[in-house]
Design a protein around this nucleic acid. Structure first.
Lengths: 122, 122
DNA sequence: CTACATATTTGACATACGTCAAGAAGGTGG
DNA sequence: CCACCTTCTTGACGTATGTCAAATATGTAG
């Protein structure tokens, strides 16, 4: 079974998942677990973490591919591949401006994942 | 290059990583990124998320393999494999008691990861 | 239209991952 | 010692992942 790149529901929609997954009464059904895993998987790579970290420090949380490739020292093709994964997970948005494509971090996405994981939350 | 199962530094040691990785001034070096990725990868799987969620709801955050296997509906061997990964990532500890092996969640580990990810933190 | 610059996709490759069945290890009780 | 229970490891299998080089798209400027 190949993973169809079906668009994930907007991260705002998953806020109910916040805490429940690791909360006391929720059993975290298979479906929720898969969704959360998809988002975590997008983050669970050294290269993508460095990309995200760079975006956090970038002005307006934004950078183009040509800026990001040198940061991680990989081919632009490979970086594009990673950015696509981050984008599909809803962690960044892309925007074309002339020859450049700018990727911007979606901080709420990170916050949502963060809250979901914290057992002390809520 | 195979990933040697070198024991990760205790999670408490990574608290300095909290926020910095996604904080404003830190560039998140390659090494830190790899470490954080290892921990996130341990969580980035539906089965392991369900196991963790079950532990959160379990009395004393503890359960044995025989209890956990039915939760995810997989072979005990497979579940053992997943628990090993969680253990190596420092997310759970294991303890033998007679014939049973009890796995206990390390909530600080989850909290540490959670704080590290939250861009609004600190 | 042509030349160039940035970005993405494709194809190929090696490696890592999740799963099971079967066997081995660790522990209990006759 | 033997039978049994729980857990872990091993070997095998298919699939997913990260990477590059090369080809293709997308956009700008002569």
């Amino acid at each position: 079974m190949t993973i169809v790149p079906k668009p994930l529901p907007a991260l705002a929609d998953t806020s109910p998942i916040c805490c429940p997954p690791l909360g006391t009464d929720a059993q975290l059904g298979r479906q929720d677990a898969v969704e959360l895993a998809v988002r975590l998987k997008a983050l669970a790579d050294p290269v993508r973490l460095q990309l995200v970290a760079h975006l956090v420090g970038a002005p307006d949380w934004e950078a183009c591919t040509c800026d990001l490739a040198p940061v991680v020292g990989l081919t632009e093709g490979t970086v594009s591949h990673h950015l696509k994964q981050l984008s599909q997970a809803g962690l960044v948005t892309k925007r074309r401006d002339g020859m450049n494509v700018w990727y911007r971090l979606v901080p709420e996405a990170l916050t949502a994942i963060s809250r979901t994981l914290d057992p002390g939350c809520c």
